[in-house]
Nucleic acid binder design. Structure first.
Lengths: 204, 204
DNA sequence: CTTGTCATGTAAGAGGTTACATGATTCG
DNA sequence: CGAATCATGTAACCTCTTACATGACAAG
């Protein structure tokens, strides 16, 4: 349950409703999230049961009533405990690599088409995330980087920036990798269209 | 269900038992896997129901009987269809980044301890995977790179090598990143132990 | 005498996804 | 008139993880 940790983290800044938290999490690239609310509302109920947050219902005229959650002392203690926990290794589920692993029997053209569409997807994703992270393409002066919650400490801002850089660099690396694989493969079919095929048939 | 795809992939090489497949998958770094067998045996049953593999029971004296699975024509067709499917984006679950996101209130020493233990874990993992992938530390002539199934085509071998490089590079990048963050943070507490603290208290 | 290998499975539970449900209001 | 926003939730489902179960044999 790492979504709970994220919820508790946001609530350590200020009280929020479930709806607010949903938006914060869906707008942030840090939290991989299915996009549906069920998990957040259930987690909040659970946090409440465990006494880590308190709840206050705000009635609104002609709008559904809000539930404002506030972090408790126990919540802050739990958050602090989690902060110091032994770090986990990242686990990356890259289905494309699995797909590629068995793609050796495809024709060079088919493989290249596959790699090209992966390259395109990664590059779109990278650009999207760059924009959201406030990386501007050197021109385009308008549109400031989004700053959802200001007034954080300098160290915290530094950490958030480094986290964003980490994730962007991963997409960048993936893009460089796929481009390199494509150029390798096209180079080797380039010299000798049948060199690969000859090798292949040699061993099969 | 990407484990099924991997199973079908291995079975496209040659027939295997569930136990064999379990070992292949657990020894390979490509497939993130909980380490338990349930998923594999169930997936094989499912593949069998869908007619993608056939099954043959081999009785052995004084050993449990084996079930040897062989890929069918429909299985090969399905594998080929999956090969050409639209690639998915990688989804990386890096819990450490989430942990770090809320660690801004820790003391510089506590953050560095946290980063140091992450660095250690990544570096251990990287070395382990380098060894398994056959990357030798320039000395140490013995111990060849493991080659579970030889007789693959040259293109396939190239792809598997690139896949391994991709994953190693990701760990390497993670290691570089955490080292850079550590040196940044220690540098800024170095010049002025209280510069950070002053900034922090300014804004809180 | 305990641990590991061979070889298969069941059962329970945690976790996450998809879809459905409500109902007023505002914007194009 | 249809779609999006605000705001919360339920129910069914699928996947994955954890733990348990068997039973002979070999190695330290």
């Amino acid at each position: 349950m790492d979504i709970q940790y994220a919820l508790l983290g946001y609530l350590s800044w200020q009280p929020f409703s479930g709806y607010d938290l949903k938006k914060l999490i869906s707008e942030s690239d840090l939290f991989y999230w299915s996009g549906n609310n069920n998990q957040i509302y259930n987690s909040l109920v659970d946090l409440y049961k465990r006494g880590l947050v308190s709840k206050e219902v705000q009635l609104q005229e002609s709008l559904p009533s809000k539930k404002i959650y506030t972090i408790t002392q126990e919540g802050r203690a739990e958050l602090h405990r989690q902060m110091l926990a032994a770090p986990e290794l990242p686990d990356c589920h890259n289905n494309f690599l699995i797909q590629l692993a068995w793609a050796g029997d495809l024709s060079p053209e088919e493989i290249d088409t596959l790699l090209a569409s992966y390259e395109e997807e990664i590059s779109v994703q990278l650009r999207m995330r760059q924009v959201r992270a406030g990386v501007q393409p050197a021109s385009d002066p308008g549109s400031e980087a989004r700053q959802p919650i200001p007034n954080r400490t300098a160290r915290e801002q530094y950490l958030w920036q480094k986290i964003a850089e980490n994730m962007l660099a991963q997409y960048q690396h993936e893009l460089d990798w796929v481009r390199q694989v494509r150029s390798d493969l096209s180079a080797s079919t380039g010299w000798t269209g049948c060199a690969w095929r000859a090798l292949d048939e040699d061993q099969s």
